[in-house]
């Protein structure tokens, strides 16, 4: 039973990543693309989680954690980049 459900959920996640990718392609502004890329990152965490159930291994736990960190850092860096072009600034205002 769990195998069937995992397959269904994997298909759902793939569909949602595909839909987000359409938004990345057509997004009228840069911000739309950043939002869609952020959502793709979050969906990838869930993807890794379901693959852990399918293969019955804990090996991907670190993968999920690292994807979470990279997706967060990536969206914040992109947001700061489209705002002013400066990603690493020292003074806190």
């Amino acid at each position: 039973m769990l195998e069937t459900v995992s397959t269904i959920v994997l298909i759902l996640m793939s569909l949602s990543i595909l839909v987000c990718f359409i938004r990345v392609l057509i997004g009228p502004t840069m911000s739309d693309r950043v939002v869609a890329l952020d959502t793709i990152g979050i969906n990838l965490i869930g993807f890794a989680g379901v693959i852990m159930i399918v293969q019955q291994t804990l090996a991907y736990a670190e993968v999920a954690l690292v994807i979470a960190i990279l997706a967060f850092i990536g969206s914040v860096a992109l947001a700061k980049f489209i705002e002013g072009g400066v990603v690493l600034d020292r003074d806190r205002d």
């Binding site: 459900v5 269904i8 759902l12 996640m13 569909l15 949602s16 839909v19 987000c20 869930g46 379901v50």
Partner: peptide, 12 residues
């Protein structure tokens, strides 16, 4: 996990 997959699709 079904709820999770459905919510992800709805968010997309």
């Amino acid at each position: 996990i079904l709820i999770g997959g459905g919510l992800s699709l709805l968010g997309a």
